[in-house]
Amino acid sequence: MKSYWMQTVGNKTVLEMRDIERPAPGPLQVLVRLHAASLNRGEFVIGHGLHKGGQASAIGMEGAGVIEALGSEVKGLKVGDKVMGRCRGAFAEYAAMDAVEAMLIPATLSFEQAASVPLTFLVVHDMLSLQGKLQPNEWLLIHGVSSGVGVAALQTAKAMGAKVIGTSGSPEKLARLKEHGLDVPLCLRGSGFEETVMKVTEGKGANLVVDTVGGSVFAESIRCMAFEGRFAMVGYVDGVLSAELDLLALHSKRLRLFGVSNKLRSPAQRAEFLPEFKAEVIPAIADGRIKPLVDQAFAFDQLEQAKEMMETNKHVGKIVLRMPV
């Protein structure tokens, strides 16, 4: 079968398509004939440390397709089921997916939409619900709201009854996201949002901040957080890995700062809250309260072009790779 591999050489990533043997599912895995897989920026950002320098590895982190074979100990799934889930090596024709990660695709979703759900919306569920404790009518500030995680956070927050402020350097992208419920669009890159955030929240500040940008917006975000506010660090595409921390604000406002990453978690830890995700988020996707936004689907042999689109920030929502089925 065909599979994409990537290695880091210096400060660049190099893609390669390989012909490898089709994987055999382990006892607690399913073999999925993939129809689509989505791109995630963190996999291509060298600073995120997901790839060792000079060492090639199969890439792709989430996908959707049809089960072709079951491991000997798998229960509750069958051959022919349409599933979506997190799995290693998803930019391929087939992948072995842990059965615990495999979720039945709601009938309302295409394979392309389904491929954009597992990793991205699980991250969003972690930062908004599990750690962020977002409540109805609270204010959420999303930096980089047009990214895949940003759009998913916007859609999920609106389904939860929250109000959303989103930053982006593109007025066109913000205009598109108004259609998805964005309450307050802020057209800017980097700093300059504090005054508006404090004004629209009537001087109280944001209850939850989602930072997909990095250290360049950290200090100002802390300044415009509400009492008992929460801050989710998701990514650092700006490359700024350090920032000033106002300890007085942290102390007096009783702020909570947390990271959202699966890099150091075991498979069991990553899967721990899947039941809550299936109960809280999947029904909202199935009935249309949350609609995964796919900006563009590329053919399987166009991963390089898809990666270039992501790296030049031309998209709103998710970019998907479509398999040759």
Rank of each mutant, 00 (worst) to 15 (best):
L141W: 14
K78S: 15
E172G: 08
C187D: 07
I20V: 12
V240M: 14
K158H: 05
A206R: 05
K318R: 13
V164K: 01
L140K: 09
V197A: 08
G203Y: 15
Q7W: 10
L141P: 11
L174C: 02
F277K: 02
M6R: 03
A279T: 07
A159D: 13
K2I: 01
I285F: 13
V281K: 09
E73F: 13
L186K: 04
N262R: 14
N40S: 02
E21P: 01
T156G: 03
V79C: 13
N313G: 12
P27D: 11
S266D: 05
A159G: 14
I282Y: 15
P283C: 11
L264P: 00
V66I: 07
D183I: 01
A243W: 13
L321G: 01
D287P: 13
V79L: 12
M160W: 13
F300Q: 01
M127K: 12
V32Q: 04
F227A: 00
A271E: 12
S147K: 07
L177C: 11
S110Q: 04
G80R: 10
E138Q: 14
S221D: 10
A268E: 12
K173Y: 11
G214M: 09
R254F: 05
D301V: 07
E280L: 14
P292V: 03
L128R: 08
V124C: 08
H251C: 03
M233V: 12
V237Y: 10
R289W: 11
V316S: 10
L255R: 10
G214P: 07
S72K: 15
T8H: 06
D211A: 07
V294C: 15
K82N: 05
G26R: 01
G54Y: 08
C224L: 00
L293C: 06
S116V: 02
R86S: 04
D183F: 00
L39T: 06
A306I: 00
K133E: 15
G10L: 07
G203Q: 05
A162Q: 00
P267M: 03
V145N: 06
G144W: 09
S116R: 08
A96C: 07
E280C: 09
T196S: 11
M225Q: 04
C224G: 00
A152E: 03
A162Y: 01
F231A: 00
S261N: 12
L248Y: 14
